[in-house]
């Protein structure tokens, strides 16, 4: 996973609530055994017309938003399925940060596993950032994870909260399996205790 320290880039406004993961990437594109190459299917039904041509009304089909690295969206972003293909598609398109009033839990977790920073801010603050995003290429946002602030085009800074452990992993691009492996002895001891205290959990054998 790539580390995330800070990012200055174009922010695309997507003022829809409850953007579900089927909308981020429909199920028919999940028949892959890889993580890469999903950016072409990002927001497929919004981005493309039934004949496959680009929908010129969709924000990511317009300049400068084709180069967006930040997305500003409505509440409950990423609801629905647990598919990690949703953050993979965002990342492959070039989005490294999503700002919204709220996120669905599984999507929120999946972002951190892939070096994408999801930032939840009150709706009125999101509305300001949405207005900034609508200004286009002359109005980049800067997101600084180290200092936990977003710098608006007018110079104002907006602080944000983030889970300290997840911030640490993201800042250093750390593999959390490696982190957990450092506790291997405790996991082993836990398993031994469980085997004695709750011996009825059978091992699965498919005959």
């Amino acid at each position: 996973m790539d580390a995330f320290t800070s990012l200055t880039g174009i922010a695309a406004p997507l003022p829809l609530a409850n953007i579900d993961t089927d909308k981020i990437i429909p199920a028919r594109f999940l028949k892959t055994i890889k993580r890469s190459g999903l950016g072409v299917h990002l927001f497929d039904t919004l981005r493309f017309r039934p004949d496959g041509s680009e929908n010129p009304d969709f924000v990511l089909n317009r300049e400068p938003y084709r180069h967006a690295e930040i997305l500003i969206a409505g509440e409950n972003f990423g609801c629905g399925s647990s598919r990690e293909h949703a953050p993979w598609a965002l990342l492959d398109f070039g989005i490294r940060c999503v700002i919204a009033p709220s996120f669905a839990d599984i999507f929120h977790t999946n972002c951190f596993k892939n070096g994408i920073l999801p930032i939840a801010l009150p709706a009125d603050i999101c509305a300001l950032l949405m207005a900034d995003a609508r200004l286009g290429g002359n109005a980049r946002l800067s997101v600084d994870l180290e200092r936990q602030v977003i710098l608006r085009p007018n110079g104002e800074s907006v602080p944000f909260e983030i889970d300290p452990f997840r911030r640490h992993l993201l800042l250093h691009g750390l593999d959390d399996i490696g982190q957990t492996m450092q506790h291997a002895q405790h996991i082993e001891a836990f398993e031994q205790r469980r085997r004695t205290a709750e011996p009825w959990f059978p091992s699965i054998v498919i005959g």
Binding site: R35, S82, R83, E84, P87, I106, T109, N110, K113, N114, D176, I177, T180, M181, H183, A184, I187, E191
Partner: peptide, 15 residues
């Protein structure tokens, strides 16, 4: 439900 990175985490660590 969990994402694929967490599937890998559980496969590797059972946690």
């Amino acid at each position: 439900g969990i994402g694929t990175s967490e599937v890998e985490h559980v496969l590797a660590t059972q946690t």
